[in-house]
Amino acid sequence: MKATSLLYLDGVSVTFDGFKALNELSLTIAPGEMRAIIGPNGAGKTTMMDVITGKTKPDRGEIYFDGAIDLTGEDEASIAEIGIGRKFQKPTVFESHTVRDNLELALKAPRGPFATLFHVISGRETKRIDDLLGLIRLSDRKHELAANLSHGQKQWLEIGMLLAQDPKLLLVDEPAAGMTDAETAETAELLKDIAQDHSVVVVEHDMEFVRSLGVRVTVLHEGSVLAEGSLDHVSANERVVEVYLGR
C-alpha cells in the first residue's frame, strides 16, 4: 500500500492544547487519483493539509509521498519542491504584485536567491504564463495588482499559481467558497481538467460541487475517517447523516 500510493498517511495525530484535531488519521491517495474530502466544520480537513505540507508537525504517525519520501521531517519549502502544491482555504495571493508576477513567482524554476537574482524570463516561461492566464480567465487583467481581484478571481489565481508550480499532487482547500453558482460550476470543470494529468485532493463543503466532480469521497469527522466511497455511498451512511444533521 505504502509503496504504490502517491500519498500515504498512517495513524497521524495532532493535538492543539489537549484538543485532538487529527486522531489516528489514515488515508491513501493513488497516483493520478482525484479525491474529495468532506466533513463538518472543525473536522480537521485543513489541519490534514497543514500536516502534509509541513506547516504543522504531527505528534504521531507516518506520512509518505511517492512511496518512499518521508514528509514528517521536511519543512514547507522542501515539501513544495518535492512536488506538493497547496491552495489555501482563505485565498492568499501576493496582493502588491500583479497577476502576472504572481504566476511568475509560482512558475517551476530554481528557487535559490542567486538563481532568482540573475533570472531573465524566457520565451517559454512567458508562453506558459499566458497559457495559464487563459486557463484561469485572467488574461485581460494580467497587469493589475492581485489586490484588485474579486474573491473568486483570487481563488482562480491561486489555482493558476498551483498549476504553475506543476506539482505532482495538488491540495485544494475549499476552492468554491464565496463563488456564485456559475463560478462554482466553472471551477469544477477547471479542476476536472487539472485532474487529467495531476493527482488532486479537494476539500469542499458544497455538495453540488462534490457531486459534479464525480470522484471518490472521504468523510472526515473529529480528526479521523468516518466513511469513504462514492458520494451516494457515503450519503447513505447513517453515521455521516448523523454528524451532518447533528450540528
Binding site: 514547507e76 528557487r111 537574482l117
Partner: peptide, 20 residues
C-alpha cells in the same frame, strides 16, 4: 525576480514558503 520574492516575503511570508 529576487526582488519580487522579497516583496512576497514582506507581504505574506508563510505563503511564499509553500511555493518552495
Amino acid at each position: 525576480k529576487l526582488g519580487k520574492v522579497l516583496v512576497a516575503v514582506r507581504d505574506a511570508e508563510s505563503r511564499i514558503r509553500f511555493l518552495g
